[in-house]
Amino acid sequence: MSVKATVLSSLLALSKKIYRSLRHEVCLSWQFISGDISASIVPGLLFMMAAWKTHPTNAVDFLMVLGRGIVYFWLYIVPFCISNQIVGIEEDRINKPHRPLVKGSVSLLGAKVRLVVSMVLFGLVGWWFGVLEWALLWQGCIFLHNLGSGSKHWITKNLFMGVGALAQLAAAWQLVTPITSIAWQWILVVAGVWLFLAAIQDLRDIDGDRAIGRNTFPIAFGETTSRVVLTSGFGLLPFVIHFALMVPAGLTWNVILCDIVLAVISFTIAARIVSFRLPKADHYSYMLFTYWFCSVLVCAIAVI
C-alpha cells in the first residue's frame, strides 16, 4: 500500500471515529434534555422569531438567526439538565428512572466532565453572540438552583425559574436586535408567570421530593391547597395576559385569536390540576404549561 493510500485510510478511520463520538455525544445530550425542549429551545427560537419580525431582513439572515438560536439554547439547557440530574439521582430513581444517570448510560464522572465542558462552551458562545450578561445570569441560576441547594426550598426554586425565564427571553431577543420597551414588557410578564406558576412541575414529583427532603410548594402547603392555588392562578392567567400584553397591541383579529387560544390552554390546565391527581396526569399538565409558554411566544410573533 502506498504512503498516500495509508494516509487516506488513516484519515478515513479517524473521521469515522470522530463521527461516532459526536453522534454518541449528541444522542447522550438528547437523553439529558429531551424532557425540557418545550421549555427551553423551542421558546427561545420562537421569541427570536418575534424579534426578527420587528426588523426583518432576508431568508439567509433568518436561517443564520435560527442557527445561532439552536446552538445557544441547546447549550442553555444542557448544563442545567446535567447538573440537575447529577444532584438528583436518588430522586430520579423514584420519579424519572428513564434518565441517563439512573439507566447507567453515562457515569457520574462522565456527567461531571460534560457539565464543566458545556458550562464553558455556553459562556464562550454567549460572549461570541453578544449576550454574555444573560448567559452569566443563567449560569448563576444553574449553580444556585442545582449545585447550591436552591431547589430544596420552594421560594428559591420558583425564583430561579422566573429569573431563568427572564435570562432566556432577554437573550433570545438580544441575539437578534437590541431589547425594546415592548420586548421588556413581554419578557417581564412571561417570566413573572414562571415565577408564580412554576410550582405546577412539583405536583408530579411529590414522593421523590419528600424522600430527599426537598420542601417544594405542594409539600410546604399541602397538595390540596397547592392545587387550589395553582388552579386559581391558571384561571386568572388569561386575564393577566389580556390586559398586560394583548390590550397594548390593539383590538385585532390576531389579538382575539391569541386570547382565545391561550385562555383555552390555561383553563384546561386549571381543570386538569383539580380533576387529576396522579403523577402521570400531573406531568401532562406541566407539559401543557410548557406548550402554553410556547403558544404565548407564538402570539408575540403575531401581535408585536
Rank of each mutant, 00 (worst) to 15 (best):
V113Q: 14
P43G: 09
I269M: 07
Y284I: 11
V113I: 15
F196S: 05
V26L: 07
T57M: 09
A220D: 02
C81G: 01
Q201N: 09
A5N: 14
R93Y: 05
Q85V: 03
R93I: 07
V117F: 08
L166T: 04
V71W: 02
A111M: 11
V228W: 13
F47I: 13
L262R: 07
P56E: 03
A281H: 13
T177F: 03
Y19H: 09
T268P: 02
F62Y: 05
G44S: 06
S181K: 06
G130I: 11
W186F: 12
A50Y: 06
P100F: 11
G140H: 03
W292L: 05
I265A: 06
W127C: 14
L45G: 02
G222Q: 10
I70W: 06
F122T: 03
T225R: 14
A249I: 01
G213E: 14
P100H: 05
A59Y: 04
R68S: 12
D282G: 03
G192N: 10
Q174C: 05
P43M: 07
L75P: 05
S9P: 01
V176G: 00
W74F: 15
Q31P: 01
A211F: 09
C141K: 02
I77L: 00
I200C: 08
A13H: 07
L14I: 11
I41A: 09
F73G: 01
S295E: 09
G110M: 13
G69P: 09
I260M: 11
Q185P: 00
I33S: 00
S40R: 04
I41C: 14
M1A: 12
S118F: 14
F217V: 01
Q185H: 12
L147D: 09
T180Q: 15
T268M: 04
L45F: 01
T54A: 04
M64H: 15
T156W: 06
H283T: 12
L101H: 00
D92W: 04
V176L: 04
W138R: 01
A302M: 13
I260P: 04
K53Y: 08
T268L: 10
A111H: 05
Y19T: 12
F243P: 00
A183H: 11
W127A: 15
R204N: 10
A300L: 00
K16M: 06
T180V: 11
A13T: 10
V125Q: 07
V303W: 01
V65Q: 03
P79N: 08
I86L: 14
I265T: 02
L251H: 03
V7F: 15
Q85E: 10
G126E: 05
F196L: 12
V116E: 06
S275K: 06
R20I: 06
P279Y: 08
V87Y: 04
G140L: 05
G123N: 07
S34E: 12
L237Q: 07
L121M: 15
N158H: 10
F239S: 12
S9M: 12
V78E: 13
L203P: 02
F293E: 08
V3R: 14
A170Q: 04
